[in-house]
Design a protein around this nucleic acid. Structure first.
Lengths: 231, 231
DNA sequence: CGCGGCTTTGATGTTCATCAAGTAAAGTGG
DNA sequence: CCACTTTACTTGATGAACATCAAAGCCGCG
């Protein structure tokens, strides 16, 4: 972690979250005071499962994974967050300690806001609180829904799903570089590393995708969609 | 659904949620005005997946299931809520339409509060909003965690888990009557009806439990715990 | 009284995890 | 910068866990 230059205040931040629109100028200035800008390299751990929660992250650029280690020791990726997401939001208000870890999977910069400052604003400004509640509700609903969606598919369907997800939701292109390993893909969509590889190879042989290391090119998105839907 | 007698106001409700402690008298009275008390028989549907959301439920007595139908048509039970739970909380603030259905699995009575009235109070009272946020966060965290926990176990472990859960979290007794069918148990812990039955039979033959229709008696809870932990 | 849903058991089949073994790539220390 | 070690990737063979299919009894309900 590295503290970054921080000469832009919340008040004139070009990528400020919509959420903050319901704040007054003075409230925004207050938040700004309890804010730091931080940078993480790929692979760096932002927060560690079990550690006390005292901050609130707003992802400015990069990509992170939220992951959880089960009692049996198995690792699972809960979700991948994109720029403009509030990360850790899922737990900051319910637990004193993180129920999951957060790790950068691409070089990432974020705003780090002291949790107590956030809470103070929430208590003062109900409209803001309601918007935050709505945002939180949407995030948790998304996580749950995608968990069920993935679970509902066979292995080929899961790979199709995640490839389309990266292409459409993260990189907005049919050619992209996977930010995670085959093992992590398995942790994300609940299958073994071997089967991730096996099915990627199948798609390659079938001419649906091209693979070069971590670079993926989707040649036949329609085909993937069909597999995803019926898998 | 049947409207129930309603002569107790929120102000002197003996089972009022802690959540409302942060409300002023007038706010409480306001909520009370937009509140109805309703009763449902076993099997009655409180809300239907896809229908617009316009209310907020507080479960006074009984038991309900939140369930969701996947695109493939498979039914899944997301969670079972107990008295003093806010039901539907998971979605009221994020969606305009219910992403799941809610059905009574025991005779149930609930307070139904108009959503707009709740929102008005949230906007007015930030402390209340923060508590609601915390509550929401805890519920969603619980649902997600238990989904992962169950997923992490083999079939024997899942049955052990759910039996202990009913005994300890719902009925506070090692003897209880299952409120749901074998099929629904399967929908709750992600396995087929046949395997639910098969494994219950195994436990019966092994002397771990006694079964008489829907009545279950756990004879050896320690054994179940071991299976649950290592399954 | 009969129909449909729930329960139960057994037989069969398939999907997927596990194991094994080797290559390639990437990080590490001398 | 090179030897070394570790981690990621890949393919094939095997096996186990679980789903599916089938058939029959049971119960509740219209």
């Amino acid at each position: 972690m590295k503290l970054a230059e921080n000469h832009i205040s919340c008040a004139n931040c070009p990528i400020r979250s919509q959420l903050f629109n319901s704040l007054t100028e003075s409230e925004l200035a207050f938040i700004n005071e309890f804010r730091a800008e931080v940078h993480y390299d790929r692979g760096e751990v932002l927060v560690m499962q079990g550690k006390p929660i005292s901050e609130f992250f707003y992802l400015k650029s990069g990509l992170i994974k939220m992951h959880i280690q089960s009692k049996s020791g198995r690792e699972r990726i809960v979700s991948i967050a994109r720029p403009l997401d509030f990360i850790g939001l899922l737990s900051v208000f319910s637990s004193t300690h993180y129920p999951f870890s957060i790790t950068a999977i691409e070089p990432t910069s974020a705003c780090l806001i002291e949790l107590e400052a956030m809470k103070k604003i929430i208590r003062r400004n109900g409209a803001f609180a309601l918007e935050l509640l709505e945002l939180h509700s949407r995030s948790s609903q998304n996580v749950l829904q995608s968990t069920y969606d993935i679970d509902d598919k066979n292995l080929r369907g899961r790979i199709a799903y995640i490839l389309l997800w990266f292409a459409r939701r993260i990189y907005f292109s049919n050619t992209f570089e996977l930010p995670i390993s085959r093992k992590e893909i398995g942790e994300l969509i609940n299958m073994t590393t071997e089967n991730v590889i096996r099915i990627l190879s199948e798609y390659r042989k079938e001419g649906t995708i091209e693979i070069d290391g971590k670079t993926i090119r989707i040649l036949n998105p329609t085909q993937l969609e069909t597999i995803c839907r019926w898998g």
